[in-house]
Design a protein around this nucleic acid. Structure first.
Lengths: 210, 210, 210, 210
DNA sequence: CATGAATGAGAGTTCATTCAT
DNA sequence: AATGAATGAACTCTCATTCAT
């Protein structure tokens, strides 16, 4: 008489929720994502989300940690056995670009969070973001010390790189539309490789000693 | 004992609503801004918001138009009687920086809207944003033709400038906090002038012919 | 500097409001009629409606009195110098039918009011409705006494006449639609004359002594 | 001290909402019925109504289907194993009368819906109503073919029967009041049986061949 | 007479969250 | 581990009505 109860293992369900949450949070933003919608997407009961993540905010933080840990690990991995700052910088940009391109929720989430002065930014997100920046800044710093870069303000350079990459990812559909409407060049057909190549070239030129 | 009599000045009320809306929308984003909250902030009845702006969406678009018209007009004004592309570029960046700094809702709003692939972006916002970019791109274009700039992808350069400025504005509090915690340089004491000076210098170097 | 103020005479405005109100109340019903809508329809300020009629309910009652007074007067007028009950009945039905047809708000209003056990029916409406019924009943009564009708329950006969006429008016569009869909005969092309002729014939047959 | 624990019985709650909704919709009409009021009446949270019925309109349609399905089924049931049109007609009227009397929301709802030219009538209601009429018309039609009825316009006859029955039900309180005030005969003490007997007798006389 | 600004109450609806099973 | 029923607070928006001019 009783309905059969879906029994999957905990890890799978928990992971499923996280994956779907990433998609929803990054496409709709925090407040426009509803737990109902998420539950439907996972084909799971709403209550399960709360069972695993306590609150919506808790889930959101889990999403963030997941993403930032991934990008950080990816960059570290790609950067091992590189010692020249110039190459390190190049590797950072390329790795970030590739990751951002294939995990487009990262740019969405970061830009969104960075857009409101972090009024309510969860501590976890903040510390993870700093870690990434510190990594970048240390590359530049080593470059300056070795004499390959000059006149560097790392924060600004960081945003010129990461900010631009993020925006290029999130605005892709908009840029296509804009190109169609106005006929103007919005780099709408460039792929991520071209973009990061261009960026690297320009950043190098910009920072190189005369 | 008697209640103080209300304004009954349409222009003032309408303006008041718009001003408060700008603040709320840019700090909290669209969906996290409640009309109740807005009404309280204006010390006005909730219904008045709808009396003047019909819907929440309508109010939001009014906010956007207001902001983007302002920045556009400001830039145009500052750019009259400049003819050299190099100087035009410089003027664009400086004007944008100053405006963004003193009207910090602009960066917030733009970044937020740009962060979700414009899924629901109001048409008005989109067209205003394009206008601004077209202005920037035409400066670069003239520069290329006159031979002062080379190897330009305007969209990317645009984001390197505008994206970075926006991020520097919206992340100010975060950067201060990050500096306090990690002791790392986050440009936390730079003022907007220094930032735009640095940006201009770097962009010029980046685009200049060898 | 001051806006020109529309100055019409009071009577015209008051009448205009009443006329529009009749239309709206009978097509949309009481609660679905909004004062805003009404004001727009009259091209008058909302406050004027309250200036003339105090409340929505007050306006509604004015509407009712207007309508019922009219139909009552019309019937009385057409019935003068008729003395035979049979003809009187015929005249009542025809007059009512014609009026209902050309003032289709009457059937709408009446049916609507009669459909909710008069829970909140305004006293004025109630008394006017009774007047009309009393008139009808007295015709039947005289007919019985003169021996032209037999076995009469006036209330039921009244509804068989007035109820049916009302329904035939209000359901006209529905009947047309139903005919189109099901192909069944819904009297969708009959005009009011045919309907009242048929009704009169049948009512007579129904009440006639053997 | 602890709050009493709620039902948690979907069927009961859903039914309860439907039952209360029937009462409210038929006494107050669609727009004058508030979901708040309904929730209070059910001693249930407002959100539950939307949980089960999605929208107010959805609930309304559920109400309608419920009612019309019931009356249709009842009539069909009572009409099995009758073959003579005369008796079928009689059975239809009696069954309808009884049902209308004991489920007085039916007449209210029908009259109300029929009173505004079905501008916004839900499709479900319309199709159910047609089904009932088609049933009635087919009885008359068979009667004509068998030679028991003559000169029939089914739509008009239908309203003379159903319209009158409906009105007699909904106006009961009004008729009592009217009788008290004016002393006139409003059939205020008749019960439904007498009314339907009278109706049947008269309709038969009205349609019978000479 | 006439207006537009202002209001409070309440409408339908959504949502994060909890509870009993 | 999983479910569906239940909730309260909040949401956007509408409406009849009033007030100052």
């Amino acid at each position: 008489m009783t309905k059969p109860v879906k029994r999957r293992d905990a890890k799978k369900s928990k992971k499923l929720i996280l994956d779907c949450a990433i998609k929803l949070f990054s496409t709709n933003g925090y407040s426009s994502t509803s737990m109902e919608e998420l539950a439907k997407m996972c084909d799971l009961n709403k209550a399960m989300i709360f069972y695993y993540y306590k609150t919506k905010q808790g889930l959101y933080e889990a999403v963030i940690i997941q993403i930032l840990d991934e990008i950080y690990a990816t960059i570290i991995k790609e950067n091992t056995d590189i010692s020249k700052p110039m190459e390190e910088l190049e590797s950072f940009v390329k790795t970030y670009a590739l990751f951002a391109c294939s995990h487009s929720y990262l740019p969405s989430l970061l830009l969104r969070e960075l857009s409101d002065s972090g009024a309510q930014m969860p501590e976890t997100l903040f510390s993870h973001m700093r870690k990434l920046y510190i990594l970048f800044a240390s590359i530049l710093d080593r470059g300056v010390k070795k004499g390959c870069f000059e006149d560097v303000i790392p924060m600004i350079v960081y945003f010129m790189v990461v900010g631009t990459l993020n925006l290029m990812v999130t605005t892709k559909p908009l840029r296509i539309k804009a190109h169609e409407i106005d006929g103007i060049d919005t780099c709408s057909t460039c792929d991520m490789d071209e973009i990061s190549e261009y960026l690297i070239k320009k950043i190098k030129k910009m920072l190189k000693e005369k």
